[in-house]
Deep mutational scan, measured.
Amino acid sequence: QRITLKDYAMRFGQTKTAKDLGVYQSAINKAIHAGRKIFLTINADGSVYAEEVKDGEVKPFPS
């Protein structure tokens, strides 16, 4: 399943989102408010992988 960072954070909370991605909650808040195009893939085992689309390139998040 693929979902935006904002939607994932709204569904699970910023604290869990940060923990799942290995970053601080403040980084999640800042990324959402900056309007960054970050998409999360939720794997069947429950693990989460995030990618950011920037300038036409897709890069892992966090980099």
Rank of each mutant, 00 (worst) to 15 (best):
A34H: 10
F39C: 07
K30H: 14
F12N: 07
D45C: 05
G56Y: 06
P62A: 05
N29I: 13
G22R: 07
L5M: 04
T15H: 14
Q1H: 12
N29K: 14
G13N: 02
L21Y: 00
T15M: 14
D7H: 06
L40P: 00
S26I: 08
G46T: 04
A18L: 03
T15W: 14
V53P: 02
V53A: 08
I28M: 04
K6H: 11
E52S: 03
G22M: 06
K30Y: 10
Y49T: 14
A9G: 03
Y49E: 09
Q25V: 15
R11Q: 13
D45Y: 05
N43V: 08
E57L: 13
S47H: 08
D55Y: 08
S26K: 09
E57S: 11
I32Q: 03
L21W: 01
H33E: 14
T41W: 10
K16L: 03
N43T: 12
G13S: 03
P62G: 09
T17C: 07
K54W: 12
I42V: 11
T15K: 14
S26T: 10
K37E: 14
K30V: 10
T15C: 13
R36W: 07
I28L: 08
K19C: 08
R11T: 12
P60A: 09
G56D: 10
K30E: 15
K37R: 10
V53G: 04
E51W: 07
I3Y: 15
A44Q: 11
Q14K: 14
D20Y: 04
N29E: 15
S63A: 12
G56I: 04
R36T: 06
R11Y: 10
A50S: 04
E57P: 03
A44W: 10
E57F: 13
A50W: 03
I42G: 02
E52K: 01
A18Q: 02
S26Q: 11
F12S: 03
S26G: 12
A18I: 02
R2I: 10
T15P: 12
F39I: 08
I38W: 01
P62L: 06
T15V: 14
L21V: 05
V48G: 01
L5E: 00
D7I: 05
V58D: 04
L40W: 00
